[in-house]
Simulated assay, not measured.
Amino acid sequence: MRKKFELKTEDQIRKMRVAGLLTAKALENVRAAIVPGVTTLELDQIAEQTIRDGGGRPNFQLVPGYYHTICASINSEVVHGIPSNKTLQPGDLISIDCGAEVDGWNGDSAFSMVVPGGDAELAARRQLQSDVCEGSLWAGIAALAKAKRLNEVGVAIEDYIAERGSWGILEQYVGHGIGRSMHEDPAVFNYRVRDAGPKVEPGLCLAIEPMITSGKQNTSVAEDDWTVVTRDGGDGAHWEHSVAVHSKGIWVLTAPDGGVSGLARFGVTPISLD
């Protein structure tokens, strides 16, 4: 957690906002296409077309050995699921992770949702899990707005989740810094750690991304060497936003409204640099 990392200028943050909005647009288009019978490869193509049409590059394709625009993880697949010809079924819990690079700056964001239809009770349980995960993301972002040290974000995320049931929090996979590269230092934990973390100061840009399971947090990597699956078969949910700290406050770069609606219930108002 003590590795050096670049603090961004306000002009650089504005450039990251462009990449963040294109990432958000790609995810918006993917979300609109999620229906029973669609394949995750079709969703991948929608995201790639959106990013390229917007003048960007899919930054997941810049990761060595990965050739897609999104990660699409279904049910017991928590993160890093590879798009394929597998079709979505009613009631599936799917997580979509995506990123765009524009003019050398990166955005990274993810959401989970329940595919319409299927067993109502199962769908409700999965929706609750997604809601808890999303809420913990906003709790972490709200904590960042007032934090002195970075792991106050992880404390807020863990507390939010613990207060809302028995969920597993992935420990092997965490958030990260973001900027000229999609993955930069520092690490952003989703739970308490002994190290308080680096100082929170203007120019700090992060991808905050809680990942929770319906059972235990233990996972394995599938034979494809990418997909992270729960060992007990429990469902996984994943939410993520790229966030910038600047001289006037915070700005959620991958939220179209800058984070206004998500942060309202925490009494935090994000501030745009536009």
Rank of each mutant, 00 (worst) to 15 (best):
A19V: 01
Q45H: 13
E101D: 02
A123T: 08
S73N: 07
I70Y: 07
R52S: 06
L93H: 10
V30R: 09
P90M: 07
L22E: 06
K15V: 00
R31F: 03
S76I: 01
H68C: 08
G104F: 01
D103P: 02
E42T: 12
H68Q: 13
R14G: 07
F111D: 00
P90E: 10
Q49T: 15
D53N: 14
V38M: 09
Q61A: 05
V78L: 15
T39P: 05
E121A: 13
N29S: 11
S73T: 10
L62C: 01
C71A: 14
I74G: 08
L27A: 07
I34K: 06
A19H: 00
E77V: 15
E77L: 00
L27T: 04
I70P: 04
F60H: 15
I51S: 03
A26I: 02
V79C: 11
A72Q: 01
V63K: 15
Y66T: 01
T87F: 07
S76R: 15
A100S: 11
E101H: 00
K25A: 14
D44P: 05
E77S: 13
G99A: 04
L93R: 03
A32M: 09
G20F: 02
L41G: 07
D119G: 03
T40C: 09
G37A: 02
M113N: 03
Q89W: 02
V38Y: 10
E77F: 04
R52D: 05
T50H: 08
D108G: 04
L122P: 03
H80D: 14
H68Y: 14
P36F: 08
E101A: 10
T39K: 09
P58A: 07
V114C: 08
P64V: 12
D53G: 10
C98F: 01
R14L: 15
H68K: 15
G65S: 11
N59S: 06
V79L: 15
P83K: 06
D92E: 09
N29T: 04
S109L: 04
D119N: 15
G99F: 05
I46A: 10
M113K: 09
G104N: 01
H80W: 11
A33C: 12
E121L: 08
S95Q: 06
V35P: 01
A72Y: 02
G54I: 03
G117D: 12
S109Q: 04
Q89H: 07
V114M: 11
A120D: 14
I51K: 00
V102N: 02
A32F: 00
T87W: 01
A123Q: 11
Q89Y: 09
I70D: 05
V35D: 01
G81V: 09
A26C: 11
P90V: 07
A32C: 02
K25F: 10
N106P: 08
H68D: 06
N29Q: 15
A24H: 08
I34S: 07
T87A: 13
L43M: 10
V115R: 06
G117L: 02
G20E: 08
D119R: 12
R52N: 01
Q45G: 09
Y66D: 03
V115M: 10
E42R: 13
H80E: 13
D103N: 13
N75T: 06
P116N: 12
F111L: 12
V30Y: 01
Y67Q: 11
E48K: 08
P116C: 11
Q89F: 02
S73G: 10
T39W: 05
P58K: 01
A120C: 03
E28D: 12
P90T: 12
A120I: 14
G37V: 12
G20D: 03
V114R: 05
Q49E: 15
G37D: 03
